[in-house]
């Protein structure tokens, strides 16, 4: 099951492509940059396929992607693009749901934009990439307690912003 086998590599790509893109988006970079870094990370994995075990591929990709972002420095602006997980449902119900979600997206974007960077990063990884606190801690090289603290900050911020109540 070596990663140097193109079929194995493709299956790893299919399994992890979206997760790596989301992980990089959580760091506050644009979709364009996230796609570039994801491609570069996978190509690096391919080049080093003989030295990276299959089970370490995910953490390797996160690490390479993260290094690409912080290599030197990079000026970024948060500009996240959302879509509904249940697009079919939107079309079936009526425009009301779409309108509500559109307003909610704006408020959520505003709340996320105004979170502290540490909290935003952890919140995005947890909520949009379904990563466990322990996985986030490993990816960011911080303790689980630190992840919990940042997540607490993010949830408190969301609560204080009361984004559901307005409208």
């Amino acid at each position: 099951m070596s990663l140097c086998d193109p079929l194995v590599f493709k299956s790893v790509f299919e399994e992890l492509n979206t997760a790596v893109q989301r992980f990089l988006l959580s760091k506050g970079i644009s979709l364009e940059d996230a796609v570039d870094h994801t491609q570069e990370s996978f190509l690096k994995l391919w080049k080093n396929c003989s030295s990276v075990p299959r089970e370490k591929a995910k953490s390797y990709l996160y690490k390479v992607g993260n290094n690409l972002i912080i290599d030197g420095y990079r000026r970024t602006k948060t500009s996240l693009q959302w879509k509904s997980r249940q697009k079919e449902r939107v079309e079936k119900i009526d425009g009301q749901y779409e309108l509500e979600m559109s307003e909610f997206k704006n408020r959520l974007q505003d709340a996320i934009d105004t979170m502290s960077r540490g909290s935003r990063e952890v919140f995005m990884m947890s909520r949009f990439n379904d990563m466990k606190y322990s996985e986030i801690a490993a990816a960011l090289d911080i303790s689980v307690k630190a992840v919990e603290k940042r997540m607490h900050g993010a949830l408190k911020h969301l609560h204080d912003k009361s984004i559901l109540k307005k409208g």
Binding site: E14, T18, Q21, L31, V35, R85
Partner: peptide
């Protein structure tokens, strides 16, 4: 709020295009 947020996902580029 979190439930509603859970109905959203980040836009990413599809696996087939990336591949």
């Amino acid at each position: 709020v979190l439930k509603k947020q859970g109905e959203l996902e980040l836009t990413t580029v599809s696996t087939s295009v990336m591949w």
